[in-house]
Structures are given as structure tokens and as C-alpha cells.
């Protein structure tokens, strides 16, 4: 189990690096999907199968499909790849890279201390549910409120503007 944890962790890190350095947007997204799948495996190995399944269903399966969808719509060509190339100068990525490597060092330290690594207690779906609707009820409700606001906003944005005068639209179609 230890081995699978480290392997999938390494895959996740490598894939994420490829996401950052990739020039083609769709290829970068594919690496991001791989990275998410690797993270799901990490979750599973750490004893959180529910979180792992949700990671795949929601992140890899739904949200990333939306991302890919948008990328396909944008039809980015060679010009976009060239611009990406320009952005990848050391000056831009050095700062975040240093901060991230600090985090990595911290993580390594935690592991070296023998923190909660592989072999932790399994968290079942029931426990997740009890936690969400017990001590974290307020947080869940706030998040759902936020989602509702987002939904209403999307509904407003996606509304047809001239719903109330349909004959106007018909006329325009005839003229157009």
C-alpha cells in the first residue's frame, strides 16, 4: 500500500508539473485530469474511498469535462501556444515555485515525523455524512446558499432578453 501511495503521489506531482508547463491547453487539461485521478488513488490508499470516488465523479468526471468543453469551444491555435511560451519565463514562475517547494518541504517534514500517512483509519461515507450534517452543518448550509446564489445568477444571465415581446423576435428573424 505504501508503494501505491508514493507512486500515485509522484504521478500527481509530475502530471501537475506538465499542466503548468504544457503549451497546448487541451493537453494541459488532460494532465490535470490524470493528476486528479492520481489524487483520488491517494485518497483511497489513505482510507477515504468515499472522497476518492467523489473526486473522480465530480472533479475528473464533471468539472473537467466542462473545462475541456470550453477549451474546445475556444479553438485555441498556435498563437495561443506561443503566448503561453512567453508567459513561461522564470520571473513569473519562480515566486510560486519557491512557495510551493516550501509547502513540499513542510509535507516531507510531517511525513518524516510519522504523521497520518498511509494506514490511517478508514473514513466511511456515513462518517462523512454525520460530520457534514453534525458539527459542520452551518458550513454546509452557507455553501449551499452560495451555490443557490450562483444558480440564480446563471439563470439570470442565461435568460432570453426579449421573452416579453416575442413578436419582436419573430420580426427580426423574418428580416434577418
Amino acid at each position: 500500500m505504501e508503494f501505491t501511495f508514493y507512486l500515485s503521489g509522484a504521478i500527481a506531482v509530475a502530471a501537475t508539473l506538465m499542466v503548468i508547463t504544457g503549451l497546448n491547453a487541451v493537453h494541459a487539461l488532460l494532465y490535470l485530469i490524470v493528476s486528479l485521478l492520481a489524487v483520488a488513488i491517494v485518497f483511497y490508499v489513505l482510507g477515504a474511498p468515499f472522497a476518492a470516488a467523489l473526486e473522480v465523479i465530480i472533479y475528473a468526471g464533471a468539472i473537467m469535462v466542462l473545462f475541456v468543453f470550453v477549451m474546445m469551444m475556444l479553438n485555441l491555435g498556435k498563437a495561443a501556444a506561443a503566448r503561453e511560451q512567453d508567459w513561461l519565463t522564470p520571473g513569473i514562475w519562480a515566486g510560486p515555485a519557491v512557495l510551493a517547494s516550501l509547502l513540499l518541504a513542510e509535507l516531507g517534514y510531517i511525513f518524516a515525523q510519522g504523521g497520518t500517512a498511509a494506514g490511517a483509519v478508514a473514513v466511511t461515507a456515513k462518517e462523512v455524512g454525520i460530520a457534514l450534517f453534525g458539527p459542520y452543518l452551518l458550513g454546509v448550509e452557507l455553501a449551499s446558499l452560495l451555490l443557490l446564489a450562483g444558480l440564480v445568477g446563471a439563470c439570470h444571465l442565461g435568460r432570453h432578453e426579449d421573452v416579453h415581446h416575442g413578436w419582436d423576435e419573430d420580426e427580426r428573424h423574418e428580416n434577418g
Partner: peptide
Amino acid sequence: NIGLLFFLAMSSLGVYSIVLGGW
């Protein structure tokens, strides 16, 4: 233990085949 979720996860990954094939 999470068989049902695994099935859902795999069926949601299957769509990449179609989308990427089309693209």
C-alpha cells in the same frame, strides 16, 4: 465498499473518450 460510486465514476470518465475523439 463503494461499488456504486465506482460505477458512476467510470461512466463519467467514459465521456472523455467521446469528447477527445471528437476534438
